[in-house]
Amino acid sequence: MSFYILPLAIGPWQIALIVVVVLLLFGGKKIPELMRGLGSGIKEFKDASKEEGDEPANDKK
C-alpha cells in the first residue's frame, strides 16, 4: 500500500474537526447562506452541462 494514499483517508474525527473549524470561521448564521449558494452553483453547473450535451455536434465529419 502506498504511503501517499494514507493521508487522504478522512475518518469521523477529521470530519468533526472540519465542521467545528467551519462553524468557528463562518458562524451559525452564515452557513445556510453558503450552502444555498453552493447548491445553486451546482444546479447551474448541471443545467449548463445538460445544455452542452443536448446540442448536436456539427464539427464531426
Rank of each mutant, 00 (worst) to 15 (best):
Y4M: 15
F26I: 03
I15V: 15
G37D: 09
P12W: 00
R36E: 12
G53T: 02
P12F: 00
L6D: 08
G11W: 02
E52I: 01
K43C: 01
E52N: 07
G53E: 13
D54H: 06
N58D: 08
P7V: 02
S2K: 08
A16I: 04
L8I: 01
L24P: 03
E51Y: 04
G28E: 13
E33M: 10
I5L: 15
K46C: 09
G37C: 14
E52K: 14
P32A: 02
F26G: 03
F45Y: 15
I5Q: 13
D59M: 11
I42V: 07
A9N: 04
R36A: 12
P32T: 05
L25V: 14
L24S: 13
V21T: 06
W13R: 09
K61G: 07
P32V: 01
D59W: 09
D47Q: 12
K43T: 09
G28D: 06
P32D: 05
G28M: 04
L6K: 14
E55Y: 04
L17C: 03
K60C: 06
I10V: 15
G27K: 02
K30V: 11
A48D: 08
D47E: 10
I18G: 10
G39Q: 14
A16E: 10
I31D: 11
N58M: 09
F45K: 14
M35T: 15
S40M: 14
M1N: 05
G37N: 14
A57P: 03
F3T: 11
S49A: 12
V22K: 07
I42M: 14
L23R: 11
L25Y: 09
V22Y: 00
S2A: 12
E52V: 02
R36M: 12
Q14K: 15
K29P: 06
I42L: 15
I15E: 14
I18D: 04
R36G: 12
L8M: 11
V22A: 13
E51N: 11
D59S: 13
G37H: 01
F3N: 14
P32Y: 02
L24M: 11
S49Q: 15
P56R: 07
M35E: 11
L17I: 07
W13D: 04
L34V: 03
I31S: 05
L6G: 00
K43A: 15
W13A: 08
S49P: 00
E44Y: 10
F45G: 11
L34H: 07
F26L: 15
K46Y: 12
S2Q: 07
E51C: 01
R36Y: 05
R36T: 10
G11K: 07
E33R: 09
A16P: 01
F3R: 13
V20I: 09
Y4L: 14
G41D: 08
G37W: 03
G39C: 06
E55P: 00
N58K: 08
M1C: 05
L24R: 13
E52P: 00
I5V: 09
L23H: 07
G53M: 10
K60N: 08
D59H: 13
L23V: 06
Q14E: 15
E55D: 11
M1I: 01
D47W: 00
G28C: 07
G53W: 05
I15G: 04
G28H: 10
N58P: 06
K60E: 05
E52R: 09
W13T: 04
L17H: 08
I42T: 10
P32G: 03
F3E: 15
L25T: 13
F26Q: 09
V19F: 05
L6M: 07
